[in-house]
Design a protein around this nucleic acid. Structure first.
Length: 494
RNA sequence: GGGGGAUUGGGGUAGCCUGGCAUCCUACCAGCUUUGGGAGCUGGUGACCUGAGUUCGAAUCUCAGAUCCCCCA
């Protein structure tokens, strides 16, 4: 199996038939990562992946700032005693924590945790910063990596170090905290569907699957091509649990101390990169939507006769300048490779649009534009290059989204009425199975466990956040057969 | 958490059973010729995961470790 830099020729695997092999090959072939660093779960991100990930950050950060969040940078380490203040939180996270136990030759009396998430760092400071109603709401975010001791790791999908954003918001009232949950889910949905063409499902998770220390969790699920689910982010209503544990309080006009409500939102940038690669890619390599493509347009000169060589190259450079003036990331590939090699190379990298320029185009002031997804060609006036690129870029995104939405719809099974049918659906096509379920409060947990065991991994993902679905009075829980109170979705996950 | 497989130039591999000169493709470097779907010729650089053991001799056999992949919970 590939571990490092592959020759581009070696990428020749069917995504449909062997997804996991395809995934493992394409991330090396497209030169996204290099796993030869040899610490399990820690990944070297090469320039193409780094630019891609920066692109993802640059889609989320402005959305968060528009909503009133400000950026901060917090320490990577969290003292053990902080970490243990919130009891449920520590119980949930301790099995996954990396500890720093010594400095130089000295053992620390109190070990430092490498943050698996930063609530316990932020709330220590919130206790100092929050005094009065004027300090609220406080909405902060940081773009960073966090550390979790995972047993199985997969590039971009599960790492011992992974990249994300975490917001930490504090509000005077429960009402504001609940409103923030809807804002977060709207941001996640907007970025994923509108900018990346990836449909997502937002679920209120069952009580037994909520964030350790929180009250309620909403998580954002994306369907992967092998039928398993990639949770690309989540928002948690923490109630007053953390503010009480850390003594975060404010005093109003009545002189009474009050504990504020808080929320946090974790857009999983790493997992989104994994989703982008997987959902849109094909047997030729990546297909990147225009908003995040590190190179949006590659210009390939076709140099035939020696005397026209400079003319063709100048034409390409002018075109590159024209597109860059309009804010596009355009690049002339004037390397010494053959045109065919360049076509395959940039297709593997996922560049959404290619412009070919040879003597024919130069003579007529034309360009030939080729779409990455369909490989359709269009000959157009060079003077209108920007307009065409913008239009075709938008069409590519629309068509990637439509394809992904159709795939998702096709993989939601709605007919299962007992656990055998749930298992059959998960075994045959994966995806989501929509079922009547007794309850997603704690009393539904035995049914969920039984179902997970019976289906070998099918988890109750919860009920849809944005669509009110309730079972009919006659409907029975797909597991226990008692009265169903929920319409829930079941899926296997990464 | 359980099981299985793998590790040989930068990448992919042959060789391992039966111990003895390490194979091929690709990439890379130099030069010349080339450019509308993965160019050609000539020359060149470059490897047996780590440690211990068995042996005259280990890529090959034994033990331990590291890393990667796959399957199942």
């Amino acid at each position: 199996m590939a571990t490092g830099l592959l020759s581009t020729r070696e990428f020749n695997v069917s995504k449909r038939e062997k997804f996991s092999e395809w995934y493992n090959t394409v991330i090396y072939a497209a030169d996204l990562v290099d796993s030869r660093y040899n610490v399990q779960g820690f990944l070297v991100h090469k320039p193409w992946a780094t630019r891609l990930i920066r692109g993802l950050y640059s889609l989320f950060e402005p959305e968060l700032e528009k909503d009133g969040h400000e950026p901060v940078v917090f320490p990577t380490v969290i003292p053990k005693e902080n970490f243990e203040l919130e009891k449920e939180h520590v119980a949930g996270f301790v099995p996954q924590v990396f500890w720093v136990t010594r400095g130089g030759e000295e053992e620390f009396a109190r070990p430092l945790a490498l943050r698996p998430t930063s609530e316990t760092a932020f709330y220590q400071m919130f206790a100092l910063w929050i005094r009065s109603p004027a300090d609220l709401p406080l909405k902060l975010y940081q773009s960073c990596s966090v550390f979790r001791y995972e047993h199985e790791t997969l590039p971009f999908l599960r790492g011992r170090e992974f990249l994300w954003i975490e917001t930490h918001d504090v509000f005077a009232t429960e009402k504001e905290a609940r409103a923030q949950l809807l804002i977060d889910s709207a941001i996640a949905t907007r970025v994923l569907t509108e900018k990346l063409g990836i449909p997502l499902m937002a679920f209120l998770r069952p009580q037994w699957d909520r964030f350790p220390g929180g009250l309620e969790t909403v998580a954002y699920d994306v369907l992967m091509p092998d039928g398993k689910i990639n949770q690309v982010g989540s928002t948690h209503i923490l109630g007053q649990n953390f503010t009480k544990a850390f003594g975060v309080k404010w005093t109003g006009g009545d002189g009474k101390e009050q504990f504020p409500w808080s929320t946090c939102f974790g857009p999983g940038i790493w997992r989104m990169a994994g989703a982008l690669v997987s959902v849109h890619g094909d047997d030729k390599g990546l297909i990147l939507p225009l908003p995040v493509a590190p190179v949006q347009v590659v210009i390939v000169p076709i140099l035939k006769s020696e005397e026209k060589r400079k003319e063709v190259l100048d034409y390409c450079l002018n075109l590159q300048g024209h597109l860059r003036t309009h804010g596009l990331r355009a690049k002339v590939d004037d390397s010494n490779k053959s045109p065919g090699f360049k076509y395959n190379y940039w297709e593997l990298k996922g560049v959404p649009l290619r412009i070919e320029v040879g003597e024919r185009e130069v003579a007529q002031n034309k360009i030939t534009i080729v779409r990455r997804d369909t490989r359709e060609k269009l000959v157009a006036e060079s003077a209108h290059a920007f307009k065409h690129v913008e239009e075709i870029g938008a069409k590519i995104l629309d068509s990637l989204r439509a394809k992904a939405e159709a795939e998702l719809k096709e993989r939601i099974t709605t007919s299962a009425t007992d656990k055998r049918q749930v298992k059959a659906a998960l075994d045959s096509k994966g995806g989501f199975v929509r079922v009547a379920f007794c309850s997603i409060a704690m009393d539904g947990e035995p049914c969920a466990s039984e179902l997970q065991e019976f289906t070998q991994g099918g988890k109750v993902r919860g009920h849809l956040l944005n669509k009110k679905e309730k079972p009919d009075a006659s409907e029975k829980c797909v597991v226990c057969g008692k009265k169903a109170h929920e319409i829930a979705y079941v899926a296997k996950q990464y």
